[in-house]
Write a protein that binds this DNA or RNA. Structure first.
Lengths: 133, 133
DNA sequence: TATGCATCCTGTAGCCACTACAGGATCAAG
DNA sequence: CTTGATCCTGTAGTGGCTACAGGATGCATA
């Protein structure tokens, strides 16, 4: 049984974030010492690491919570996990597409600036009346 | 001089968002009618549209505010605008790189699921002890 | 045993950029 | 005169933390 500080170090989840996850019911409440300090077992740490990995993949907290709930053993969890991951994958790809079009527009505006010797093409673009194509 | 509803429609910025921009000092306070209703000129609408375009490019509000501040005429604004845009472009590209690696990891996990007939590879991956490469 | 510093506790507020009300005033049309 | 659309202010909620304030506890050293 280790302290919250050690659990933070071993899981890669910040102390304040651990307490946040506890408040939000994402991970179960840990045991406490007589004086009220939280103590964490290895499986508590594993759960925290699990949530961190989910978050690194960009999975929202409810998704992470759902996946964590599947880790109670059964192999029937696979289709469920796959569904969650697939939905998230689509979100990720949609976001990438958004960013891609932002990137193109920015690159174009910046490039125009280099050829420019009159008005600023960036400001012109942003000020123009027409809606973008 | 038009109402906030019409300004919203013509600028593409939601009414509540317009009021928010005003509170935050992103756009100047518009005139009011005798009864206290906001009235917007064409240039007010142009400013709102400008901020919307910035936001569509993912520019944070302070950046949008800076760019809007440059639209007071001078062509010397170009290098400044280019700097703001370039910094933002880098942020966009960093975010895309993050999403790209999330995407790869998700695709791999989902693919493994299809070949799977034992434990769920997604949960295995998220639960594993080792740090990812 | 005293002291000092690290670590922990709870509770609250802040971040970003909105969005969504509640509860009321005003306007325009029939 | 009533109805319904639109407007007003002010406040709270979203997600996922992060950053305190103000205090209690634990551990090592003098």
């Amino acid at each position: 049984m280790i302290s919250i500080g050690q659990a933070a170090e071993r899981s890669g989840v910040a102390i304040e974030t651990i307490r946040y996850y506890e408040r939000e019911g994402i991970v179960p409440k840990p045991d406490r010492t007589a004086s009220g300090r939280r103590t964490y077992s290895e499986s508590d740490v594993a759960r925290l690491r699990f949530v961190r990995r989910c978050r690194e993949l960009g999975l929202p907290i409810p998704g992470a919570k759902s996946l964590l709930g599947l880790t109670d053993g059964s192999q029937k969890s696979c289709p469920t996990a796959q569904t969650i991951a697939s939905k998230h994958l689509k979100n990720v790809q949609d976001k990438m597409a958004d960013l891609k079009s932002m990137e193109s527009a920015l690159i174009e505006m910046i490039r125009l600036c280099d050829d420019n010797d009159d008005e600023c093409p960036i400001l012109n673009h942003l000020q123009s009346e027409r809606e973008e194509s």
